[in-house]
Design a protein around this nucleic acid. Sequence first.
DNA 1: AATAAATTTGACTCAAGAGTTAAATTTATA
DNA 2: TATAAATTTAACTCTTGAGTCAAATTTATT
Lengths: 211, 211
Amino acid sequence: MISLVMDINIKEPFNRDRQFALKRQAVIRAAGLDFCKRGFHNTSMTNIASNLGLTKAALYYYVKNKDEVLFECHQQAYDAMDILLEKNIIGRNGMEQLENLFGDFVRMLTASGISLLTDVNSLSDVNKTKVLKRRGIIERKIIKIVKQGQSDGSIADGNSRLHVFFFMGALNWLNAWYDNSGYFKGEDIAKHFVKQMKMGIAGGHLNQAVT
Amino acid sequence: MISLVMDINIKEPFNRDRQFALKRQAVIRAAGLDFCKRGFHNTSMTNIASNLGLTKAALYYYVKNKDEVLFECHQQAYDAMDILLEKNIIGRNGMEQLENLFGDFVRMLTASGISLLTDVNSLSDVNKTKVLKRRGIIERKIIKIVKQGQSDGSIADGNSRLHVFFFMGALNWLNAWYDNSGYFKGEDIAKHFVKQMKMGIAGGHLNQAVT
DNA sequence: AATAAATTTGACTCAAGAGTTAAATTTATA
DNA sequence: TATAAATTTAACTCTTGAGTCAAATTTATT
């Protein structure tokens, strides 16, 4: 439906609404990195602003308050995860799906500048409820994949919830220690983590000897 | 060297220094649980005090300031981990040692009321340095066990640091979601987690088919 | 009973940081 | 050039919570 006469992309940088939205996104992402590195309460709005080369007043041109910023950080991460969940509904069996998904999670967290924050208690009550609800939904989707894998034999029996909590712990912790400029390259971590995740819960035909 | 005439234990409750120390420990532990549940900055000194049935002023009879409380929480966890590291230097091979150790970690965290906090950035610079140093030492001890396991063949090749970061992530995350009164019993989690940790990095003779 | 320790009461100081505002200035758009 | 959007400056208000303090009271110890 895109007309060839009227090129949309070339006008993009002149679309102010679009620019506003992009800058807002950048603000959230930068704030997320700050929160991840120093913690929500150890990061002031002034900090966030000056890390962006901005002023506190300018920051408030893009966001309502600090609570909204934290909330949007969570949303950003969950949006990304939802997309990856959508993308990875394919796969020979539960395990294959899970491998792709988990690898994508790691790649997303190490490459996109999106932070998977765990500080839910610093949110206002309303937003905390929303975030926990959404986290629960994502959690259940992952558990569903695991259960599917247990049905098709690609994933070992055992409490599916604990299976998931274990490797999602690795993911949450990754976000805390991972450093862009550090020793490990994102892709290497992804490969390693997928393998360790997989082996940890691989189905019976792969681990009869060990149980 | 303990004289049989002078019984030490029976006088214990009348030893004021000892009572003071015990109460102080209880304060730290209670604070740790609060920090774990709501976060350091979302827990006021008044909160901690009233959760103990005390008054803020009484709290300051036992601790110097809030920074000290957070610092001692970390110390408490690391003291416990050090003891478990000492206890588990035995074992047929690296993996067996690691299994015992990891299981003990889980049991300790689910049973003792000791919290493994991750908020290091809310500490004063001096204490943050101390905590990170100590965490590094413990990390290296665990990595050493893993490397030993890789030598004796009980643990799979691959970056030992990533091996450790993966399952220690599960441990840190456990502390965030575990709830005393919740669905899972500590011992069940321990058994499950040990298994999943083990399978994730089991040595070649156990997982040739999967690599 | 005398003394020391443990704790309460309640009022207080102080600092940090969120959030606001208005006016001036710069930058982009048409 | 005129207009609207983006940003700065700088000063300001308000709230929260850490930490202090002194005097009174309760509890344990000898």
